[in-house]
Simulated scan of single mutants.
Amino acid sequence: MGLVFRSRKKFGPLILNFTENGYSSWSLKIGRWSWNSRTRAHRVDLPGPMSWKQDKSRSR
């Protein structure tokens, strides 16, 4: 298993995600709720180490 480079830049509620190939995706985080542009998934942070995730279907 090799090393993977990942980086995040935060601008308020907007988060830009980068990998070794450059720009990867963007996320929006407001309070405990977040949304990712690549996976199109909603996520809510729950108390403790758990979170709830709702995937959006990619098949059309």
Rank of each mutant, 00 (worst) to 15 (best):
M50C: 06
P49S: 13
T19F: 07
W26A: 00
S24I: 02
L16N: 05
S57P: 10
D45T: 07
G2S: 11
D45G: 04
F18L: 01
K56L: 10
H42G: 08
R8T: 05
P47E: 09
K9H: 12
D45S: 14
G48W: 02
R38E: 11
S37P: 07
R6G: 01
L16Q: 15
R60W: 06
L3Y: 01
M50I: 02
K29D: 11
P49A: 00
S24C: 14
W52E: 03
S57V: 02
M50Y: 06
V4Y: 02
L28I: 03
V44G: 00
K29E: 03
T39N: 08
N17Y: 10
R43H: 00
P47A: 00
K53H: 11
W26I: 00
P13W: 15
F18G: 03
W35R: 02
I15Y: 02
S7V: 14
T19A: 05
W52K: 01
K10N: 10
R38D: 01
G22Y: 07
S7R: 13
G31D: 03
I15T: 07
D45M: 02
I30M: 01
W35M: 09
S27K: 02
N21Y: 12
N21D: 14
N17Q: 06
D45H: 14
G48H: 14
V44W: 03
V44Q: 00
Q54N: 09
